[in-house]
Design a protein around this nucleic acid. Sequence first.
DNA 1: AGAGCAGGCTGACTTCGATCAGTCATCAGC
DNA 2: GCTGATGACTGATCGAAGTCAGCCTGCTCT
Lengths: 244, 244
Amino acid sequence: MSNVQNTALINKLGAFVALSGPELSVLDSLQKRQRSFVPGRDLVHQGQSGQVAYILRSGWACSYKILQDGQRQIVDFQIPGDFLGLRSVLLHISDHSIEPVTDIVVSEVMLKDLLSAFQKAPRLATAVLWAASRDEAMVVEHLVNIGRRNATERMAHFLLELGARLALVGVGSRKGYTCPLSQYLLADALGLSAVHVNRVLRHLRELGLVTFRDGVVVFGDYEALIAFAQFDPTYLDQRGPLLT
Amino acid sequence: MSNVQNTALINKLGAFVALSGPELSVLDSLQKRQRSFVPGRDLVHQGQSGQVAYILRSGWACSYKILQDGQRQIVDFQIPGDFLGLRSVLLHISDHSIEPVTDIVVSEVMLKDLLSAFQKAPRLATAVLWAASRDEAMVVEHLVNIGRRNATERMAHFLLELGARLALVGVGSRKGYTCPLSQYLLADALGLSAVHVNRVLRHLRELGLVTFRDGVVVFGDYEALIAFAQFDPTYLDQRGPLLT
DNA sequence: AGAGCAGGCTGACTTCGATCAGTCATCAGC
DNA sequence: GCTGATGACTGATCGAAGTCAGCCTGCTCT
């Protein structure tokens, strides 16, 4: 039963395409080697030509871009079930880096295997296209978040989104969740300084909306927080199968 | 020769997958009806469930999101050859709106036709996945732009990117290009106020880097502008065919 | 000819968030 | 029991960009 550990990915792709037995085994054969990484060294490095993507099994990672002057912008955090570096292999060059946030376990997916899987099971390509669209929707929402919300709303929105994503994979709820991100990481993700992240978190705590302390996010007033952040989770929707 | 007008899209997808005759005709049959739109009314509206995507033939459009408090963030501008609303149909709900910037001509692509085209010509799915990845790379770069560059660098980067994209479809060069965007549109795209956009344009003009006046962008010192904006066009790369 | 409007442009003032410069607590290594 | 590193936290100051308010130009419509 090698696909036991595949649950996250199958759930994800299965939400769009009802996968048949043969398709599932093609999907399963994609994932060759399992590897572990620790924080501090990139899995994928900006500018390198990518031949291999990963599927995240456990732990958290983040994808980011570095500017020449050393500033960095975290584009997204990845949680179990997410692809890492899919865009890099498709575009044949990595425009970003990926780094573990915690210790992580991934399985490798080779570009050639992926392309031949698409030949063997065409609907897998559609499913992956769907997953990529969903990732894009998330990046778009981050863009709106950074472009049009102030620091406090931005943080609120971020914490809500993360909670919703974690809830989809079965960790966390509208009470709260555990979260291994430092204030420096939050700063790089939200386009703020670490100092200001600290102040914003205090502000949200004082408002009684959320508390983030000792690696735990606890929602104070979930409804009020959603209103405050203008959070609309449409873009995270998991739709039922469209192709049967 | 109905595919004469398809050139833009074929160039785009053909850069990743060398399309065969049958694949080309499937691609061609996708595009049913031609339609025209004028500025002021949305093609796609946020929250609506999308059954139809478009391919932009002529003119410019923009995709944006509106917050409940009325602020808006333009995610990207589309130029001829670009998809409009592809994500909306794949996710089955539109998380954003699309509006013409100028008078535009589009051809419709129905979701069901798209999915059945993927069945008939699986490599089309791969090609579309590639195109979607490229769009995502652009959104990611916008995110970095807004998150980590100041207003002036941001504008410089934006004007360079637009120039590079236009050059890829054969309009504009490193001298400059014509550009129908108002300062209000620029403001909504760059997360700035219209007032500040004006000041920033003046600043860039005074530095001798770019001039944007009367709908025309003229580069003063192209190399210096690239350095100033830390513009790295990797993410726009058109790679040669990977699948033959 | 005049009214109304969109878009470009500018000055004065305000504010949000960055920066600088620290303190404090915890933990790992020697 | 030190030393150094990391991360949370805070106050003071400064600057980039927003807001408000208004002017000017070139249109379209009546």
